[in-house]
Each structure stands twice: as C-alpha cells, then as structure tokens.
Amino acid sequence: MKCRVCRGPAIIDIRRHNANFCAEHFLKLCRDQTAKAIADFDMILPGERVLIAVSGGKDSLALWDLLLEMGYDADGLYLGLGIGDYSDDSGTYVRAFAESRGARLIEVDLRAEYGYDIPTGARAARRAPCSTCGLSKRHLFDRAALDGGYDAVATGHNLDDEAAVLLGNVLHWHDEYLGRQLPVLAARNGFPRKVKPLVRLGEREMAAYCVVRGIDYQVDECPMAEGNRHLAYKDALNMLEKRSPGAKHDFYFGFLARASERFRTTIDAEQDALLECERCGAPTPSEICAFCRLVEKAAGAQPVTITTRGGAV
C-alpha cells in the first residue's frame, strides 16, 4: 500500500477516505481534520485558553498533543477517580505525557478533596458508576474551567463516540439529548463552553495517532464500564462501516446538518430556568446541585474495593 500523498510506504489505510497514508501524511491528516472541526464550529478562537479533560486514554492524550502542536494554549485537567489500579495507571500516563511536553497539568483527586471515589460514591448514592463518574466530571471540569479563567473545556470525544451516542438517542428518541448533541455548546449561565475537536476523526485513527507519536496511553478498559449498550452501538456501526465506509461520518454529520436544529428548542428554556446551588453556586434545577448531594451521601460511606482489571470486549 502506498501513501495517497507521497506514494511512500503506507502505515494505515482509512477506508472512509478511500486512501492510505504514510506516518507523516497521516499526522497531517489528523491535524487538518482537527483544524477543520475547530474552524467549522468556531470551537476555539485565536488567543483563547483551553482546558482539556484528560483521562489517560488515547483520545484525550491525542487531543492534548494535537492542540499543543497546533500552537494552542492548552492545559490538562486530570481527575483522580479512585478506580483501583486502573486510575493509578491512567494517572501515570497523563503525568508522563505532561512532563514530556512541558505542559501544565492540573490534578483533582476525588478521594483527597471530596472524600469519595467513584465505586464508593456510586454505591452510596445508588447510581450506576458511569453516571456517578459523569456527574463528577461535568461538575469538576466546569468548576476548574471557570476558576482558572479558561475560555473552553475540550474533551476527546471522537466520531465513533458521537455516532454511537446518536444511534442510542435516535433508537429511543431521546429528544432532549438529541438537542444537546452538538460539537460545541456555548458558554452560558455558569457553564463554560464545551468543545469536541476530534469529531472528524475515528477511534481507530486516534489509537494510530498515539502509536505514531509514541504516546503511551491506557489501553485497558475501565473495570466499571457499564459500556455494554454503548459498545453494542459501536459494534453495530462498525459492521455498517465495514460494508459501507463513511457510514458513521454520514450518519453524524448528516444529523448535524439536517436534523439537529429541530431538537434544539428545549435546551434554551431549560437553561434559563436554572438556579444557583446553595452550597457551591453551580447552576442547578433544584436548590442543591446533584454533585453536592452526591458528596453528602458519599461522606463517611464504607470504601468499596476494586479487584478486577479490564472489562471484557
């Protein structure tokens, strides 16, 4: 196989682009696609400061690397979730990356600063671990971005993530989620702007990017991943993609261009109706926000130990 651009030996084939690429031109493709996503959706403007939610996985580390390479002022925020060895290893990858790039990393440890970890908080609050985790991440990323004066929070969601979420939301017609499923959510009412610069790149490309750039990342699955349903959507989409390359891209970008507008009306009204949390000041529909309620329930709960490693695929 030969590179589409220089005819040198290829290292990766991307059937969606009907092309193969050498290492150099593959990296250029990743940068170009990221730049296009940022420009098309006005994600980050010149001179703005970005806070990247880094987990130690391929997507967030690739995103951090890409933004730094492209000259953005991008710091990382890592949350210590306290999920056994998985979190310890993930933190190691994040710190090693930050150090190698001389990049600024902010760390927040849930157990040290808020008195709980994900497994314990989930049990105490009787929520699914991923729901507890998602709630904690949203709250703490928003807060860190506002406290640190960042213009935007960037996450590593890629095309596969977005297409899988879209499939799930369409299958069950979750109108309110469909209205929010955008590559950019504007800042308002105490929420910082949220951007997803990797939406034009697939999951396979992000893993390949890390290998080519020599970035070590957490390959194992989080042992708490409730993933089954989400993974099933990804599998289904990859089956379609194999038969019809470009299917995921058409599905997601077709939705953004032709359908997403119709679901947007509900968001604005909802956001305008928010109050300030009595304890922390975060925007919330009730008097005390869901995060503060979680912290309260988890306080003093018996810690849950994680023994398993790596979920099944």
Partner: peptide, 9 residues
Amino acid sequence: VISGGAVDT
C-alpha cells in the same frame, strides 16, 4: 480501539 464508558458524560 473501541472504548466503552459513560454515555451519560
């Protein structure tokens, strides 16, 4: 290269 995780987030 497929990761699971939270739909919720």
